[in-house]
Simulated assay, not measured.
Amino acid sequence: MARVVRFHMHGGPEVLRIEEVEVPPPGRGEVRIRVRALGLNRAEALLRVGGYLETPTFPSGLGFEAAGLVEAVGDGVEGVAPGDAVSVVPPISMVRWPAYGEVATYPARLVVKHPPLLSFEEAAAVWMQYLTAYGALIDIAKLGRGDAVIVTAASSSVGLAAIQIAKLVSAVPVAVTRTSRKKQALLDAGAAHVVAFEEEDLGVRLQEIVGPAGARVVFDPIGGPIFEPLTAAMAQGGILFEYGGLSREPTPFPLWTVLRRALTLRGYLVHEITGDDDRLAAAKVFILDGLESGALRPVIAKTFAFDDIVAAHHFLESNEQFGKIVVTV
């Protein structure tokens, strides 16, 4: 038996319950992990309220990211053994392979030995943020030296990962955030410029920063009204990645800007990378090298105990965090 977090209906954080369940042994090609830390993601709150891409079957588990020690391996598993310290690449379905629990089981291809320099808390904060940013910025956009990249929701874990990756390849990260309260922290984190869109005219400020050349890449999980000033600040032939939909307002389609500048507006999910063995292998090398060199380092906003999972989800929804929320088990 093991304690896991499940929910029996959609709703606020209070629907999350810690329950004891029987955990089966790992199947062929699977690895069971004794979890030491969990990384929280906005997608988990969306699944909980019924607004995510997949539909849970109640009672449902949830969670994408975990780090811990290998407890058991199924037939055919090579490369990891009981006792190894590992972290988990997010699976395509958190309903099928939920992370929130004392133990969790995953396909072996998604289990990574993490560098000894990382704590379990840091290791649980690695893969979702860096794979999401890497896939868009490096794998697809080929971001490089001198490229301006506009990063919205910049104080989120993915936003901070994008800033770090942009710096690593000598690009110019322009951070967009709601207010100036996190401005200095974003500059300290590596942003070349910071725009607080609730306090400044987003379009005017972006034009001042990127100039006539514009930003070749925009990395946005928000959508909504900021779409127009974002696209207005883009370079000829630029690409905008939309990897979320946090705004509750309609997202306008900037037809004439798209036509004049031959822009690409592209939906993007991290599963494009995690579902392709070759692209995932290249991503792992990039990210692990960055972690080893210190160029990439997860930022932990706050740590909660497993029994405080409801409070952790309240904090997740507060938008007060700077970086990743982690739960220790």
Rank of each mutant, 00 (worst) to 15 (best):
Glu242Ser: 14
Lys167Gln: 05
Phe120Asp: 06
Asp139Leu: 02
Pro221Val: 04
Val73Trp: 12
Ala154Tyr: 03
Asp278Phe: 04
Asp139Thr: 03
Leu230His: 09
Ile300Cys: 04
Thr152Gln: 01
Ile150Arg: 02
Ala232Asp: 14
Glu14Leu: 04
Met128Gln: 13
Gly267His: 03
Pro229Cys: 07
Asp307Tyr: 12
Tyr134Cys: 02
Val112Asp: 13
His313Gly: 06
Pro298His: 08
Ala161Trp: 08
Leu202His: 01
Lys183Glu: 10
Asp139His: 10
Ala141Val: 00
Arg178Gly: 11
Val210His: 00
Tyr100Asp: 05
Ser170Pro: 15
Tyr268Thr: 00
Ser60His: 11
Ala123Pro: 03
Ala136Leu: 04
Ile222Lys: 01
Thr231Tyr: 13
Ala154Lys: 01
Ile165Gly: 12
Pro254Ile: 12
Val204Glu: 15
Ala161Tyr: 06
Val217Phe: 03
Thr57Leu: 13
Pro25Ile: 12
Gly159Met: 07
Arg297Ile: 06
Gly63Asn: 15
Thr105Phe: 12
Val327Met: 06
Val172Gly: 12
Asp84Met: 08
Val23Ile: 10
Ala45Asp: 11
Ala108Pro: 15
Val270Pro: 00
Val176Arg: 00
Gly11Leu: 01
Pro107Lys: 14
Gln236Ile: 15
Ile92Lys: 15
Gly323Lys: 09
Ile92His: 15
Arg28His: 13
Val285Lys: 15
